[in-house]
Design a protein around this nucleic acid. Structure first.
Length: 489
RNA sequence: GCUGGGUUCGUAUAACGGUUAGUACUCAAGAUUCUCAAUCUUGCAAUAGGAGUUCGAUUCUCCUACCCAGUACCA
């Protein structure tokens, strides 16, 4: 959900400003490759109607070859491997970065030692002078190590005691002293891949990205990114850091476990993890994509008016970063359902009937499209999801086979049954029947509920007139007689 | 711990120094009805705490508290 919302906000800003929304796959961590994840992202965006202007080829796959539509291909960072090394080296020769030869074990030892002393190890100006890198080692040894070893990295040389002044489109002015920051790894010799920080800045520059809108978890990295743009001498894009999506109860950010626990989806589409674990999706739960997009848009943003229902096109018009909040938004599953309910009401009877038809088939029921359309017209205001239709109106398609005991005990009494039978048999329509009951001054509630019990198996549900309009007088009589056989024996 | 960010009804949010602090969801009550929904009406419910600036602070400043994020050769 969080990822889709971020994509959505990016899309909206791009469209609002007449720009392009670029999809780029940031897969620079070779150890965290998840099969199917990339296809899942593309499918999810497509379902939401968030179509990238750039980054996908004609087949809807991540573009690998440059053409008119995708001038910056490839869009997978793992396939851009060759690009990054020279930029890393450019930083080294400019004095903005250096080669580091510390092994993972050595760094681990440093961290353990610092922790033992009640401190945190930080790789920056305070420690780099005594560590193994191209700033402390003689040039010839550096050259030798670069040649011999395959586990060195390029680290950013974080300036000492400098205040970086930044501007965030959502949070405004932010200042950070560089002495609190560390010398981040920018490039790894081991797999010849950059880390996020380098790849992101290089690609954003190469792809002419003007607006970076991402999650708040990136805010602590913003000073580094500012410094990288400065070191390269590149114009930097505008930055906006979105508030996080929080779990409905308690503290912390929304995780897939919250959804499982509280019974709502956290994924747009159903997702099967490599270990086989299945996470439910909004699509599979019966949400309409436009409802999903709408509810996501309202999580952290408001239009400044009291309008709550927005199509994607309306969002493009109304959206702005100034109206995005600064604090994390707790997700409210009830409100999510409300959105879907509103969207269900806006759907045409034809469309809803088409969605309901397969459900009926699954229940072994066949009905005409016209009949189903009328049923849907009657019941759609009572439903939140298409899946609710069957529970609401199944008895318009099949006769009840059992009766709710509690309701039968309350309404299936001899005197009620006698009145109900007479009313049913003596009249030709529900309207006539109602007048008949009224004329006789019988208790309307008792008689009607008695009939409803026979027609639906319970005393809850649609109005008798509506039910009889659909199933017809003959079927009503049949059901009533069957109830008499079963309940009075 | 350190650094950064955040804090208005239970939840999402409005009010960009002056309002009886509004709206939506949820919940409750009433109306309606043959029941249940739906619908309509009403109601419950908030500026984290403390200083300061000001004629006046939800709004500006500072302190405290709490929450979140980051603190990886992950993104």
């Amino acid at each position: 959900m969080g990822g889709v919302r971020t994509a959505l906000y990016n899309y909206l800003i791009a469209k609002k400003n007449g720009g392009d929304f670029i999809l780029r796959i940031e897969d620079t961590d070779s150890h965290r490759f998840v099969p199917g994840a990339e296809e899942y992202i593309i499918d999810s965006l497509r379902w939401c109607g968030i179509v990238p202007d750039e980054g996908l080829d004609a087949d809807g796959r991540v573009a690998e070859v440059a053409d008119e539509k995708n001038p910056h291909a490839p869009y997978r960072q793992s396939q851009r491997r060759g690009i990054y090394r020279k930029y890393a080296e450019q930083l080294v020769s400019g004095g903005y970065a250096y080669y580091a030869f510390d092994t993972a074990e050595e760094l681990e030892k440093e961290r353990a030692a610092a922790e033992g002393a009640g401190q945190t190890f930080i790789y920056n100006a305070s420690t780099r002078g005594r560590l193994r890198n191209s700033l402390t080692l003689p040039a010839d040894e550096v050259a030798r190590l670069l040649e011999e070893r395959t586990d060195w990295t390029v680290r950013f040389k974080m300036p000492l005691d400098e205040v970086v002044e930044m501007d965030d489109e959502i949070r405004g002015h932010i200042e950070v002293n560089t002495s609190t920051l560390d010398d981040k790894v920018l490039w790894k010799r081991a797999d010849e891949l950059p880390t996020y920080h380098l790849a992101n800045i290089v690609d954003d520059h190469l792809m002419e990205v003007s607006d970076v809108i991402r999650g708040e978890e990136w805010l602590p990295s913003l000073p580094l990114h500012y410094l990288l743009y400065r070191a390269f001498g590149w114009e930097r894009p505008k930055f906006a850091h979105l508030p996080l999506l929080l779990k409905p109860v308690g503290n912390g950010k929304l995780s897939k476990r919250d959804g499982d626990k509280m019974g709502f989806p956290v994924f747009p589409l159903q997702w099967t993890a490599p270990d086989g674990a299945v996470s439910r999706g909004y699509r599979e739960d019966g949400y309409f994509p436009d409802a999903f997009v709408n509810l996501l848009a309202m999580l952290g943003w408001n239009p400044g008016t009291e309008q709550e229902i927005f199509s994607l096109e309306e969002l493009v018009q109304a959206f702005s970063l100034e109206k995005v909040g600064k604090s994390g938004a707790k997700f409210n599953p009830d409100k999510a359902k409300w959105f879907n309910k509103e969207y269900l009401r806006m759907r045409s009877d034809e469309e809803l009937a088409a969605l309901f038809l397969p459900v009926l088939e699954a229940h072994g029921v066949s009905a005409s499209e016209a009949y189903v359309r009328e049923v849907v017209a009657l019941i759609k205001e009572r439903a939140t999801f298409v899946a609710d239709f069957w529970d609401i109106a199944w008895y318009l398609f099949v006769a009840p086979s059992e009766y709710v005991e509690k309701d039968a005990a309350k309404f299936w009494k001899a005197e009620n049954v006698a009145m109900a039978r007479e009313a049913l048999e003596a009249t030709a329509s529900a309207h006539e029947m109602e007048e008949y009951i009224r004329a006789k001054e019988w208790p309307m509630g008792k008689v009607m509920n008695c009939i409803r019990l026979a027609l639906t198996g319970s005393s809850n549900g649609l109005g008798i007139a509506d039910i009889m309009r659909f199933i017809g007088r003959e079927e009503a009589l049949t059901r009533f007689r069957r109830a008499e056989e079963r309940l009075l024996s």
